[in-house]
Amino acid sequence: MKKRNRQAELIKQLSDRELTFHLLFTQGLMIGLSIILFWVFQTEWEHYLGLFVIDVKLFIIAVTIGLVVVGIDLILMKVLPAHYYDDGGINERIFSKRSFLNITFLALLIALCEEILFRGIIQTNIGWLWASLIFAVVHIRYWTSWFLIMNVTLLSLTIGWIFEWTGSLLVTIIIHFIIDFLLGLHIRMTSMHGKTVERNVDHG
């Protein structure tokens, strides 16, 4: 609980511009690390580019899985206590004030950078389990809650398994994008609704 409170205080101290900078900087680091590991593992370009394949069937699978994951999350948000999803206010700060286009851009950027690194580079070279666990560990802000730990670990294992099954990095990118995009929109809409209620109460 103390760690979560410290995390929340640190987030509150950041301006919107500083928060955006940290987000972009983190994604830039992931791309830089992907390039370094690509060279370290001596990955062949033809093999790597072969991961970026998709057809109609795989696209439908990706969209369906993304929507199912979001649906399960939204249901759990309704039935579980609010503190189960408390990450120290980071996701709320990231998405609550952003426009539709900004949320789309961020969700796409995060999906591309994280899937290229964790699935495209790490999983391809050291395996599904290790890549999935590293992905979960890197999302350190979720380690303030046992539920969030379990949530992100299961999601990482699932996306990693889907990559093993389909052999398509585009499938996992689409799934990742849909999850971040729709949950980002949910946070934005919930925030707007809360402000509307507050204004109605103030004027009531």
Rank of each mutant, 00 (worst) to 15 (best):
M1A: 01
K3S: 13
R4M: 06
R6T: 08
Q7K: 13
K12T: 06
S15L: 01
D16F: 08
F25A: 15
T26I: 04
T26W: 02
G28R: 15
G28D: 13
G28T: 13
G28I: 15
G32Y: 12
G32H: 11
S34A: 15
W39V: 14
F41W: 10
F41P: 05
T43A: 08
T43I: 12
L49C: 00
I54Y: 07
I54M: 14
V63M: 09
G66E: 01
V68I: 09
V70R: 05
V70L: 05
D73E: 01
L74T: 00
K78I: 00
V79R: 04
V79C: 00
P81G: 01
Y84K: 05
D87H: 11
G88K: 12
G89W: 10
I90F: 12
I94V: 10
L106I: 15
L108H: 11
L109R: 06
I110N: 11
A111R: 12
I121V: 09
Q123T: 12
T124G: 12
I126N: 06
I126G: 08
W128G: 09
W128V: 10
L129D: 11
A131P: 13
A131I: 13
L133N: 08
V138I: 15
V138R: 12
Y142I: 07
W146Q: 05
W146P: 03
W146V: 03
F147A: 00
L148R: 02
M150Q: 02
N151R: 10
T153K: 08
T153L: 11
F163N: 13
F163C: 14
L170I: 14
T172L: 15
F181A: 10
L182F: 11
L182S: 05
L182A: 05
L183G: 01
L185H: 06
H186V: 07
I187N: 01
I187C: 03
I187K: 04
R188W: 00
R188M: 09
M189P: 01
D202S: 15
G204I: 09
